[in-house]
Amino acid sequence: MKSDSKKVVRKTRGKEPVICVVDVGNSHTVLGIFKGTKVVDYWRLTTRKETTSDEVMNKVGGLLGFSKIKTDEITHVGLSTVVPALERPWIKALDSLLKKRVQVVNSKNCMGLRINYQNPSMAGADRLCNVVAMREAGFKNAIIVDMGTATTFDVMKDGAFAGGVIIPGINASLDALTEKAARLLPVTIEWPDAVVADNTDDAIRAGLLYGFLAQLEFLIGKIKKEIGCDDMPVYATGGWGKTIARRTSLIDKYDPFLTLRGIRLVALNGDATNINSEESRDTEEE
């Protein structure tokens, strides 16, 4: 169901805004460049939790050198991170490299998004961005399944973030299983021919993939029942989103850039009083 609320996007006078967005996840970091609403470049990096601002600046500067967009064309910068220790290095690097203040996504600058969470500040920035992006697309109710290190089911009800579900991601499940079970070794993750496997490797694969799929379909059904909206759309995003979306009819669309779209909107429209890049620029990492 789509909302009739008006879209609000501030534009640079006479030109389309050019926005650099960064989504720092537990395992991977995605860097993207938007021109207006279009993704013109993006890169996927391994998240290194001990990285410094100099290392970030060197990596990002190198990647932007291959972009169609020059750094001095960038008008806005947005950052979402679920790794608190990396917030300061990324702010400092982006601020120094792009000479623009960095809008860091948090529960207070998501364009007036209602957050129905016991402690709104504990809601993941990436989860809020997913809902902001869906609201901007015109939806009032929706489920966003973001499949990364953790898989989150982000629920949008009446245009607000209504909470959701968090379960281990596929790779995290494999790591936990092989770490705790002495005779089970890591396997390549690919779909086995059948659920009932005649060897240990395929048995692990079947449990991981078909088990995850069954869990996903069950939770989608339960969420729709609790919300009382059987026709609410289900979008998938994240590293495993495309693979899983192909295997179930319950996912309506896969959008690899959904979280980045939300960061873009916050970068353009977020409350600038929540930016503190000056402090981050002057403070060295410990």
Rank of each mutant, 00 (worst) to 15 (best):
A194M: 12
G78W: 03
T47N: 06
G270W: 01
E16I: 00
K100D: 06
K7F: 01
V60E: 00
K242V: 03
K2G: 11
V165I: 15
S67F: 05
C229D: 14
W240N: 07
F161L: 05
V105N: 08
S80R: 01
V83A: 04
L94Y: 02
R10S: 11
Q215Y: 04
G124Y: 09
G164E: 11
D95Q: 02
L250H: 10
N116M: 14
K38L: 10
I69C: 05
L265R: 07
E73L: 03
K100Y: 01
G148I: 05
M147Y: 10
T248N: 12
L31Q: 04
N116W: 06
E73G: 01
T12I: 14
K38D: 13
I220T: 10
A206D: 10
T81W: 04
T71Y: 00
E278L: 12
G228Y: 09
A203L: 05
T149S: 15
E87W: 00
R48I: 04
D175E: 15
G164H: 08
D252T: 13
E50M: 07
S80D: 00
R264N: 11
D271P: 07
C129Q: 04
D202Q: 11
D41H: 12
R88T: 05
G163R: 09
F139N: 11
H28N: 15
V105F: 04
N130M: 08
K35C: 06
S107V: 04
I189H: 04
N130L: 02
T151Y: 12
L219E: 12
K157N: 07
A206T: 10
K157Y: 03
L64W: 02
P17K: 09
R88F: 01
I244V: 15
P89I: 02
Y42V: 00
R10T: 11
D201K: 14
G241S: 13
H28P: 00
A182K: 07
L86C: 07
